[in-house]
Simulated scan of single mutants.
Amino acid sequence: MSNQTPLSMALSQRKSDERATPLSAFRMARRWWLEGRRLNLSLLAEELDVGRATLMRWVGNKDLLMGEILWSLYRNIYDEAIARAEADPKLDGIDFLTQIYTDINVALINAQPLHDFLRNEPQWGLQLLTSNVSGLQQRLVDTWARLFDKELRAGRINPEMDADTLAYFIIRIGEGTIYCDLICGRTPDPQPASHAFRLLVNGHCS
C-alpha cells in the first residue's frame, strides 16, 4: 500500500507546478510585512513566479496592497475588541463603545510590526494610514459609522453629530494618539483619546 496521500503529493510538487492567486499574493506580502521586510512588488512577483504585470493587475498598486495588509491588521484587532466588549454584560452604550475604542488604540500602540513599518518608512506609512490613498481611511470611518448607527438606533447614545462625521473625528483622534511618537515626539497615551471619545459620542464624561 502506498504511503502517499493527496497532501504528501501536493507538498512534493515543484514550485512551478503551484499556481499563484491574488489571495496567495496577499498572504505572502502580509507575511513579509509581519516579518519586517519591505514590500517590493518585483521581488513578490518573482517569488510567486508570476509577471509583475499580472501581480499589478491582482493588487492594483503598492499603496492598495499595503492598505489591504493594514486593514487586515485593524480588522482582526477590531473584531477581538468587539468580542471582548460583548462578553462583558456590564458594558452598555457609551461604556461599551469606549471600551472597544480604547482596546483598539492600545492594541495598535503595541503592534510592533506597525511601528517597525513606520520607523522604516515614516513618510509612506503615515500617508497610507492618515489619508485615503490606500482606501484604509474610508474603511475605518465606515466601520465605526456602522457601529455608531447601531447604537443610535437602539437609543443607547445621543451624539450631536451624524454617525459618519463622528466616525471621522474619532479616527483622527485615534491617529493622533497612536502615531504621536512619530508625528511630534510624544509618548502614546490612550486615555486622553478615550476621554475625547466620550465627549464626542455622548456629550459628557460620566
Rank of each mutant, 00 (worst) to 15 (best):
Q4T: 10
Q4Y: 09
T5K: 10
P6M: 10
P6W: 05
M9F: 14
R14P: 00
R14Q: 14
R14I: 04
K15W: 08
E18L: 13
E18V: 13
L23I: 15
R30Y: 07
R31P: 00
W33V: 04
W33T: 06
E35L: 09
R38M: 13
L39C: 08
N40I: 04
L41Q: 04
A45C: 14
L48Q: 15
V50C: 07
R52L: 11
R52A: 01
R52T: 15
M56G: 07
W58E: 07
W58T: 11
L64M: 03
M66H: 14
E68Q: 06
I69M: 13
L73E: 13
L73H: 03
I77H: 04
Y78C: 05
E80A: 09
E80F: 10
E80K: 08
A83E: 09
A85Q: 12
D88G: 14
P89K: 06
P89W: 12
K90Y: 13
D92M: 12
F96N: 06
Q99V: 05
Y101K: 02
Y101A: 06
T102F: 06
I104S: 01
V106H: 02
A107Y: 00
L108V: 09
I109N: 00
I109S: 00
Q112P: 03
Q112G: 05
L114K: 02
H115L: 13
R119W: 09
P122M: 10
P122G: 12
Q123C: 08
Q127V: 11
Q127M: 09
N132M: 04
N132W: 00
V133D: 03
Q137V: 00
Q137D: 11
R139T: 14
V141K: 03
V141P: 00
D142A: 08
D142P: 04
D142W: 06
R146C: 05
F148P: 05
K150Y: 15
K150D: 11
L152E: 02
G155T: 11
R156C: 02
E160F: 08
A163E: 05
T165H: 13
A167G: 05
Y168S: 04
F169I: 10
I170W: 01
I170V: 15
I171C: 00
R172G: 02
I173H: 02
G174V: 00
G174Y: 00
E175P: 04
I178W: 00
Y179D: 02
Y179E: 00
Y179H: 02
D181I: 11
L182P: 15
L182Y: 08
G185M: 15
T187V: 15
P188M: 02
P190V: 06
P190N: 10
P190L: 12
Q191C: 07
H195V: 12
H195D: 03
A196S: 11
R198D: 01
R198C: 02
L199R: 07
N202Y: 14
G203I: 13
G203T: 08
H204F: 04
C205A: 10
